[in-house]
Amino acid sequence: MTDSHHISRRDFIKLATIVGGGVIGTIIGIPGLVYLLDPALKSEQGETWISLGPLENFEIGKPTLVTFVRSRVNGWEKTSSSYGVFVLRKSETDVVVFSNLCTHLHCRVNWVEEKRAFVCPCHDAAFDIDGNVLGGPPPRPLDRYEGEHAKIEDGVIKILFKEG
């Protein structure tokens, strides 16, 4: 190159290849990245109200397990999972709904009438009838469906269940 204002044919081709390649690469590259990360970028499905049955099904003072099955679609595959909650009717009108998942590592707890406790089979945790930790590794009481996550409608107990 003798004249610095002029770019040689060779250098022009080189530059054009790099710029052109870069532009095409980005145009294809970004959709490619979105394609790969798509499942991580999607928001999970929403919430639904689940009926647990009429109030009079539940004996006062005894936690009762209610199970239900929800299916969800992952990509092209449909899977059904079953979930459980404990319904505790404290009085005629006062109801508490606990999740049956242990707050330690999500094993499912059982109500053991003789001990008057929810017992977790995995690491021997126990929760009292109000869900408070009696012993074992769990860091907090059993989760509850309360406030806007639970209601009694026409005498039927309902919880707002989060999917995903």
Binding site: P31, G32, V34, Y35, D38, L41, G75
Partner: peptide, 9 residues
């Protein structure tokens, strides 16, 4: 239909 830009790839 389910993956963004899947049709393109």
């Amino acid at each position: 239909t389910g993956v963004r830009f899947g049709w393109l790839i």
